[in-house]
């Protein structure tokens, strides 16, 4: 049970994020919602990287009997998460800069009023 807690947190984060994107009216909150979804997905990736009894691939601090490189855990999920975080920062910055521009032109951040493009 205790090992399932991260997965429950992942599901909760993604659902909270989707809730924020769908039901919140403020654009900033939409952006926050997307960031929360992203944190959920990143948490999921990191959780997958956990191997019980695994040895981290840090060469200076290896136990004696570990063969290199087979005995160590392959750090793929960590690498994926780092990439995903970097991409997430880029998306976040882009979204916030667009929100600034929208506020300048429309004078509001209410998602119901920012819909000149419809039909």
């Amino acid at each position: 049970m205790i090992f399932n807690i991260p997965f429950i947190a992942v599901a909760a984060l993604i659902i909270i994020g989707l809730y924020a994107v769908i039901f919140r009216k403020n654009l900033i909150k939409t952006v926050i919602g997307i960031t929360i979804i992203e944190s959920g997905v990143n948490l999921f990736l990191i959780t997958l990287g956990y191997r019980e009894g695994g040895v981290p691939p840090i060469y200076t601090n290896l136990p004696e009997d570990v063969s290199i490189p087979r005995g160590m855990v392959l750090p793929v999920p960590q690498a994926l998460t780092l990439t995903s975080i970097v991409i997430g920062v880029a998306v976040l910055a882009l979204m916030l800069s667009l929100v600034i521009h929208i506020y300048r032109v429309y004078g509001t951040l209410d998602v119901r009023r920012i819909r000149r493009l419809r039909e």
């Binding site: 994107v21 654009l27 939409t30 997307i34 979804i37 992203e38 997905v41 998306v91 882009l94 979204m95 667009l98 929100v99 521009h101 929208i102 032109v105 429309y106 920012i114 819909r115 000149r116 493009l117």
Partner: peptide, 21 residues
């Protein structure tokens, strides 16, 4: 400088970000 273009860009990035995640 066009509000509509920024609005379209914002909608696009929201849709793509959620889709890609």
């Amino acid at each position: 400088h066009k509000g509509e273009a920024v609005e379209a860009g914002f909608k696009y990035i929201v849709v793509s970000a959620v889709g890609a995640l």
